[in-house]
Amino acid sequence: MKHSAAAAKTSGRLRRIRQAGLDKAPCGAQHRTSGTKLRFGSADVLTGLAGIAVSFLVLCALVPGWIAPYSPTEMNTAAILQAPSVLHPLGTDYFGRDVFSLIVYGTRDSLLIGICSVLVGVLIGGTLGTLAGYAGGKLDTVLMRLMDVLLTVPGILLALTIAAALGPGLRNIVLAIAISSVPGYARVMRGQILAIRRRGYVFASRAIGARPSSILIRHVLPNSAAPLLVMATLGLGSSILAGAGLSFLGLGVLKEIPDWGALLSQGRGYLTVAWWICTFPGLAITLFVLSINLIGDRWRDAVDPKRKGKV
């Protein structure tokens, strides 16, 4: 008995610390302590640029036809492996397809993998975390142990295993990445719920006889959502990286329009003769993830309660 209590305590501590770490990892706390106008300005310029980049890529995903000069499936066999030029700003691939157009059209699936897997992950993780945090007791222990188990298998390995088990396909890749991100979301959500349950207004509502479910929905959830959303934003970046990684390892699908990871992987063999095929999709991935991270950092700063309190 004593033994297990000790275990719970230690691992509880670890969890708390870890959670704090997770929470803060991509920390932009710098804005908190000093706040000269100038620095805020430059950070905002960066965030603005990131916003423009993200908007542009979203536009690519929604209406690629407006932006891409060529059809992504058009194989001009007379113009294969051409270096970047005026005609083909990012060159052509080994089918004679225009790399720029491919990247523009590939945005949709790349973003889709990222967004869907984050949504699914947040939904499952958030629900589990809420359950664990709100119900407490045995359910909490069981759920969190399960999350510990999931965390023991590193994300990419888990995603790789799941993707291999499910077979290739956009849906399966989304599922694989989502599942591997569940424990992170579940932990943050649980931590939030635990913290907020102890707030005065929750006690107050309980005192005036509000039902637990209504307290959960009206008070606890809305107040716990912000950190989860920030984490989801930053998670979008890592999900896109994970999706590209799986495509790279060959677990993607042979689609008419390859996503960025697949495009990069296909161009890999041409590295020495046509560096542009895999360099530019990699750049697109980096640009997007970078922008998302910049925006996520800013947002985190904005919702960080500690920061709010101090500024």
């Binding site: 492996l81 080994y94 063999g269 041409y270 020495t272 003769v273 046509a274």
Partner: peptide, 8 residues
């Protein structure tokens, strides 16, 4: 040797 490297 992949075809694209043959020429090189």
């Amino acid at each position: 040797v992949p075809p694209q490297n043959v020429v090189a």
